[in-house]
Amino acid sequence: PQAGGFAANRYGMNLGSASVMYASLPYDPFTPFLKGDKDIPIVPLEALPQRLGEGEQRVSFMDTYQTYGLMMHISGALGVNCTYCHNSRSFLTEETTPKHSLALIGIRMARDINTSQLEPMAGLYPEEVLAAHGGEVAKVNCLSCHQGVFKPLYGQSMLKDYKGLN
C-alpha cells in the first residue's frame, strides 16, 4: 500500500534501482540527460537562495538529485568512482581531470544516438517491443557499451574489423 497525502508522491525516487546503483536517487536519470538535452546542473550554493542575479539560474535540490543519479549510473557503468572524472577536493571548481571532458563527449554521444538514430526508428518496432519499454524504443546509456569497465571492450581496437572507419 502507498501512503496518501504529501507522502504519496515519490518524485521518481526512493525505490531501489540498478540504474542508480540502488541509491535513493531518482531512478530515471536517462530521460532528462540522455534523451533530452537538459544541462547537468551542479550542487546549489545555498540552501534557500533569496534572489537571482542577472543571468543566474536556480539549481533546485531535485536537479541535484537527478545529477547525482546520473553520476551514480556513470560510476557503476564504468566501474570507477567520482575521482575518475572529478577533483574530490572541490566538486564546484573547474579543476577536473581530462576524463571529465571525455565523459561529457560520451554523454553527448549517447544523446545523439538516442535522438537521431533510435527515436526515428520507433515506427519500425513491433507494438509488443514498444510496450515493454513504456511505448518508446529502448535507449542507450553508459552501461550499453562500457558494461562495468572504464574502456569499452577494455580498450580493444575495433578499427581492423571496420576498414571504413580508418
Rank of each mutant, 00 (worst) to 15 (best):
P152Y: 05
L159I: 09
N87W: 12
I74Y: 08
G16L: 14
H133A: 14
L92E: 12
Q156N: 08
G76T: 00
G12D: 00
P49H: 07
D63G: 02
V140I: 15
Q117Y: 11
N87A: 10
E136C: 07
T93R: 05
G12C: 06
H146S: 09
S157Q: 04
A77R: 02
P44F: 06
A122N: 03
A132P: 05
S19P: 00
L102G: 10
I113W: 11
F61N: 14
G53W: 02
K99F: 02
E128T: 02
R58K: 13
A132K: 13
D161W: 04
P152V: 04
Q147P: 04
V129S: 09
L52I: 03
A138G: 13
Q156H: 08
Y68M: 12
E94R: 11
G135A: 10
V140C: 06
R10D: 14
N166I: 11
Q66C: 02
G76P: 02
Y125V: 04
K139T: 12
M71L: 15
D39I: 10
R89S: 15
T31L: 04
Y22G: 03
V59A: 08
S90H: 07
D37F: 09
L25W: 06
A103G: 07
C85M: 00
P32V: 00
K35C: 15
L78T: 02
E128D: 15
C85H: 01
S144D: 06
Y84M: 02
G164Y: 05
A23N: 15
R89Q: 14
A138S: 11
L159D: 11
G12S: 07
T97Y: 08
I42N: 13
A77P: 05
Y84T: 01
A18W: 07
H146I: 05
A77H: 07
R10V: 08
I42F: 09
L130Y: 04
D28H: 11
V80I: 12
E94G: 08
N81S: 14
G79D: 06
K35A: 10
Y11A: 13
K151W: 06
V129H: 14
Y162K: 05
V43N: 09
M21P: 00
A3G: 12
K139Q: 15
L48P: 00
D28G: 05
M71W: 05
M21W: 02
E95T: 11
L124V: 01
K160V: 01
T83F: 03
G16E: 11
N9G: 01
A23H: 14
L165W: 11
V149W: 05
Q50D: 12
L143D: 10
L78P: 00
G148I: 00
T96A: 06
I107A: 10
N114C: 10
K38E: 11
V129M: 09
M71P: 00
L92C: 12
P49V: 08
P126R: 08
L25N: 07
L124T: 07
P49R: 08
N9F: 11
Q2Y: 10
G106Y: 03
I105Q: 15
H86M: 03
V140H: 01
Y154R: 15
E94A: 11
Y65G: 03
L78D: 02
Y162C: 03
A18N: 07
V59D: 06
A103L: 15
L102A: 12
A23S: 14
C85K: 04
K163W: 09
M158I: 14
K35G: 01
T64H: 14
S17M: 02
V43F: 11
A138T: 03
Y68T: 07
